[in-house]
Amino acid sequence: MSKFVVIGERIHCISPAIREAMAKRDPAPILKRAKQQLQAGATYLDVNIGPAESDGEELMKWAVTTIQQAFDNVPLCLDTVNRKAIEAGISVYNRSKGKPIVNSADAGERIENIDLAAANDAITIALCQKHGIPADNDERMAYCQEMLERGMMLGMEPTDLWFDPLFLVIKGMQDKQLDCLEAIKMFTDMGLNTTGGLSNVSNGMPKDIRPIMDSAMVAMAMANGLSSAIANPCDLRLMETIKSCDVIRNNVLYADSYLSI
C-alpha cells in the first residue's frame, strides 16, 4: 500500500549531453535533468554512467555528491556494470531520504551485485534472467528464488530485492507481454517488490505512440501489483496514469488536486 516509486531514467550516459557533462564533470546539464525529473514526480533518480572502465569510481562519487547536494539528498539508483564504481558511489551516498539502489543484479554474471547490496545495506534491482531472455515464467521464478535465497542468506530483507520481470519490446515479442504481467502478479503475491525498465515495451514505436503504450502497460502492471518502474517522469501521460493508478490501488489518498502533487 505504499506509493509507486518512479525511478527517473533521464540521467543516462547514452544521451550525448549527459555523456559530455560526465566527461567534463560539468554539473549543469545533469542537475537540469535531475530538477526536471523531480519536479515531474520522480522519487528516485537513476544515474547511469555507462561501463566507465577507466574512471568509474571517481565519476560515480562525483555524480552522487553533486546530485545529492543540489537536491536535498535525493535517493539515487546507481546504474553501471562497474561494480567498484557502485561501491564508490555508495561510500559517499547520504541515505537520509532512502537507501541506494544497485542497478542491477541478475541470476547470471551479475549475481554478485546482490552480495554488494547486502554488504552495503542497499536495495538491489534483481533482473530475472541468466543467459538472455527467460523463455517462460517457470524460468523467471527459478531465478527469482535463486536471487531471493542468496539475498536472504546474506541478511537482506526480501523487500530490498526489487524483482525485474524484464519488460519486453512489443514490436517483436507481442506474445510475451502477458507472461511478464503474470510474473509481476506472482512476485507481488509473494510479498515482493517489483520494478523494471518500462519503456522497453514501446521501443521502436513512433514517438507519439510511446506515451500511450507505456501508460497502458503501467496501468495493467500496477493492477498486478507493480510497485516501481524505471521510467521517464517527464512523460505527462505516464505520470498521470501512475498517479491515477496509485489512487485506485489505495496507495495514495485521493484529493481533487491529486495530479498536481
Partner: peptide, 10 residues
Amino acid sequence: INLAKQLNVL
C-alpha cells in the same frame, strides 16, 4: 477525508 487533504493542498 478527501476534502481534508484537498484543503491542505490548496
